[in-house]
């Protein structure tokens, strides 16, 4: 039996609201991409029948809109959690304002993307590159909500969609709004492919339990990393 004995510490990284957000988000994005693609290019399912038999396309659109509302409020909640959650979920992780974040971005590109150097990336939550990519996806979320609700606002008197109605005149009309909405859908699809692969990759290489951490919230982190971070925080509190 092969086994390895190294000092590990279990760290509670993803709080329950973060995990809930993640899975609702995953569900919404899956649903939105599938229904969105069908809306863009509907298959000929019921050919030869009359309209009064069917409402399947209307249902697909309904599912798309419901998912969109869920997606939006879920995202709003996550934004809020970025200000009240634990250190791994805070907003400053996602926007690389500090030089140390940029340094780690370059490290991650060297170590994990190009694989030209071998060293350990010591961040416990997301690494700096992953965080930055999530920040870009958040921007895509915002644009997708803007364009989506912008199109939706024309057939709704509800308060929320009409908050986004201004995007249509800004872009000069629905044609461009729909085009952008459609292109960004591919952003979600490509992100999902890469995201799932990289989760497997990190679990395979680092064995910190990153995949299951989004289920249980805990990661297995090498003890020296946790200790050094704890010392740093203790130092700061002493000062």
């Amino acid at each position: 039996m092969r086994s390895r004995s190294i000092p590990l510490r279990e760290v509670y990284v993803w709080e329950f609201p973060v995990r809930l957000y993640h899975w609702i988000n995953a569900l919404c994005i899956t649903s939105l991409c599938i229904t969105g693609y069908i809306i863009g290019d509907p298959p000929a399912l019921m050919k030869g029948t009359e309209a009064y038999f069917n409402y399947w396309f209307g249902t697909v659109r309904f599912v798309h809109f419901v998912s969109a509302f869920l997606f939006f409020f879920n995202f709003v909640f996550r934004t809020y959690w970025g200000f009240v959650g634990n250190e791994f979920s805070r907003w400053y992780n996602y926007i690389p304002l500090k030089p140390s974040q940029w340094k780690e971005i370059i490290d991650v590109i060297k170590v994990d993307v190009l694989q030209v150097t071998h060293k350990r990336i010591g961040s416990i939550g997301h690494n700096a590159l992953a965080s930055f990519v999530y920040f870009i996806t958040f921007l895509i979320f915002v644009f997708q909500c803007l364009t989506g609700f912008g199109m939706y606002s024309a057939m709704s008197n509800a308060f929320l969609p009409n908050l986004f109605a201004w995007i249509v005149p800004v872009l000069g009309g629905d044609i461009l709004v729909r085009q952008i909405h459609h292109i960004l859908m591919w952003g979600f699809i490509l992100f999902t492919i890469v995201h799932v692969y990289l989760v497997f990759y990190h679990d395979y290489i680092e064995r910190r339990g990153v995949t299951s951490s989004m289920i249980g919230g805990w990661k297995f982190i090498e003890e020296d990393i946790v200790d050094s971070l704890d010392e740093n925080t203790n130092d700061k509190t002493k000062k």
Partner: peptide, 17 residues
């Protein structure tokens, strides 16, 4: 090497933050 059970632990490259 990472995969075959010999982790490349290099304490000098730990994050300084």
């Amino acid at each position: 090497r990472n995969i075959s059970n010999s982790p490349t632990v290099d304490s000098e490259t730990l994050k300084e933050s």
